[in-house]
């Protein structure tokens, strides 16, 4: 089992009732209660019993976040490739193919333009099931395309980041995406276009240390793990036992890395409100 498979949401508890063939049950990874998927979907995949935010795919995320109706998908023309011809226990090309099959996505970042409570917005969402949401050159390019679209149309950009970090299989081509995406955010800053970053469990490495931390406003989902170096590596390296809650959203808020923690069900309303406030200031200064 690869590190990515380990991190991918455990829907092992998913099962269908034999008789109906319709109802799908999902076990909450936190409290282990079984919930009907239809019920979970109504609560945006937040466990009604314990409030745990279950991992969801990028497409589901955008469906939950954007108003129903027409969407424009951005950056789809940027397709995967393997410039390094990277091979570990399997080829990178095989990993990409399997990830695409498993998730139904072509890459680890999905970008759509649509509306949030009637306001046009551009939204990028990482697909954690696609190679751990890792950032390679196509992910960087799509983020840049998202930022370009927001700039061109003068609309805010919102990004939901969930990622293991830079993609090892593209090495330097992946590392430099940190600079490329930071530059994309910088162009939005210069133009006075709001950029809201939402940190979703987990965000690490090259993604947390670039586009994800640079929001005008940084928001995290409850109990999300966010850091540069993972806790296991820190403990191995320093021999220090990390305190409970280390790198969780609540810890980040306490230490000044994020502005607020917002449950999934309130994100539409809170972000729309923030955008109203930011747009108002901009218009007045304008």
């Amino acid at each position: 089992m690869s590190w990515i498979d380990r991190l991918v949401p455990k829907f092992g508890g998913t099962s269908r009732d034999d008789d109906s063939g319709e109802s799908v049950w999902i076990e909450c990874p936190s409290c282990s209660t079984r919930q009907l998927e239809t019920i979970l979907a109504e609560s945006f995949h937040v466990c009604p019993n314990c409030g745990h935010h279950l991992r969801i795919g990028a497409r589901t995320r955008l469906d939950y976040f954007l108003d129903p109706g027409q969407r424009v998908e951005i950056g789809n023309e940027h397709r995967q490739h393997d410039p390094l011809k990277f091979v570990d226990t399997q080829t990178y090309v095989d990993r990409l193919t399997r990830a695409a099959k498993r998730t139904g996505e072509k890459e680890a970042l999905l970008v759509q333009a649509g509306k949030l409570l009637g306001r046009p917005v551009c939204v990028a969402a990482f697909e954690f099931g696609f190679l751990g949401g890792s950032m390679g050159s196509v992910v960087g390019r799509r983020f840049q395309a998202a930022s370009d679209y927001a700039l061109e149309h003068g609309i805010p950009l919102i990004c939901f980041a969930t990622s293991g970090g830079a993609r090892m299989q593209e090495s330097m081509l992946s590392l430099v995406q940190m600079a490329r995406t930071a530059a994309s955010v910088e162009r939005l800053n210069e133009a006075g276009i709001p950029y809201i970053s939402v940190l979703v469990d987990p965000v690490y490495g090259g993604v947390s240390a670039s586009l994800a931390i640079l929001g005008d406003v940084n928001i995290a989902e409850p109990k999300a793990l966010v850091g540069f170096t993972g806790p296991r590596v820190i403990e191995q390296n320093t021999g220090v036992k990390l305190p409970p809650g280390f790198q969780r959203s609540e810890f980040l808020l306490e230490h000044g890395s994020i502005d607020m923690i917002v449950e999934r069900g309130r994100q539409r309303e809170v972000i729309a409100h923030l955008l109203n406030l930011l747009a108002g200031a901009h218009a007045e200064l304008g």
Binding site: M178, A179, A182, A183, V185, E186, N189, S208, A209, S210, L211, A212, I213, L214, V226, G227, F228, S257
Partner: peptide, 9 residues
């Protein structure tokens, strides 16, 4: 995270 990202920007 912020230190690295801010340098890049």
């Amino acid at each position: 995270n912020e230190a690295i990202a801010s340098n890049l920007a």
